[in-house]
């Protein structure tokens, strides 16, 4: 009898754990918007388009507002020759700005300056780093991985839990996402997290998770 209840409980918990709505890969690919910011031609653009991705290239940061509003799911950013009007640090400055206004934005840093130790901070700020001469399949693999994460609620739940540093918060995070109300977590955040940057990152992640849930239900 005890076994039966434990089994039922586990089933319920498992069901709860995996009950987040999931978008199919084709749907993700269709919805995912990719941006390349590079002053030189990025030859893989056509290959990404051929494979069904929505991608565009800017030779410089032409619409900062769109970046700040999270108009793209994954940004592939070069470090040199772009963003000089925004920052003297060029691409690094752009990335720092993105991290400030949209901390959860997915960015792949790629550069021909990957040998330069002074650029290490640029690469550290990014979610993935690619050498500029990498094969198309390598770029695609990274883009696919980040797109999967971008549209996975589990990823956000895990990441927020990790950022808060308290596994017991998982329930309240899930509740905030399910209800579509980030304020449920606000009190806890104010008590647990002192760093305003981390707080803003968590809220951004939470907002993204909520948008995915609503996206899946609309679908």
């Amino acid at each position: 009898m005890t076994y039966y209840f434990v089994h039922q409980y586990n089933k319920t918990m498992l069901w709860r754990r995996y009950s987040w709505p999931q978008l199919g890969w084709e749907e993700i690919k269709k919805r995912g918007r990719l941006l390349v910011i590079d002053d030189a031609e990025f030859a893989y653009i056509e290959l990404f388009r051929r494979d069904g991705y929505t991608i565009e290239q800017w030779h410089d940061v032409t619409d900062l507002e769109k970046l700040e509003k999270g108009g793209f799911d994954v940004i592939m950013l070069d470090i040199r020759g772009v963003g000089s009007e925004i920052s003297k640090d060029e691409g690094f400055g752009v990335l720092k700005h993105i991290r400030k206004v949209r901390p959860a934005q997915f960015v792949i840093a790629y550069s021909a300056s990957d040998y330069d130790l002074t650029q290490l901070d640029f690469f550290r700020l990014a979610d993935a780093v690619m050498p500029k001469s990498a094969d198309y399949v390598d770029f695609k693999r990274e883009v696919d991985r980040l797109l999967q994460q971008r549209f996975s609620v589990e990823y956000y739940v895990d990441r927020i839990t990790k950022e808060i540093g308290s596994p017991s918060c998982k329930r309240i995070i899930c509740k905030a996402i399910r209800k579509g109300n980030p304020h449920i977590l606000s009190d806890k955040l104010n008590r647990l997290i002192e760093d305003p940057d981390v707080r803003s990152l968590i809220l951004d992640l939470l907002q993204m998770a909520i948008s995915i849930v609503s996206l899946a239900y609309v679908k």
Partner: peptide, 22 residues
């Protein structure tokens, strides 16, 4: 100089990738 070489090499690498892929 390395940056220039790497930049040029990246262009060749990307374009040969596109040719083979297509």
């Amino acid at each position: 100089q390395i940056h220039d070489y790497k930049q040029l090499n990246a262009q060749i690498a990307q374009n040969i990738n596109v040719i083979i892929e297509e």
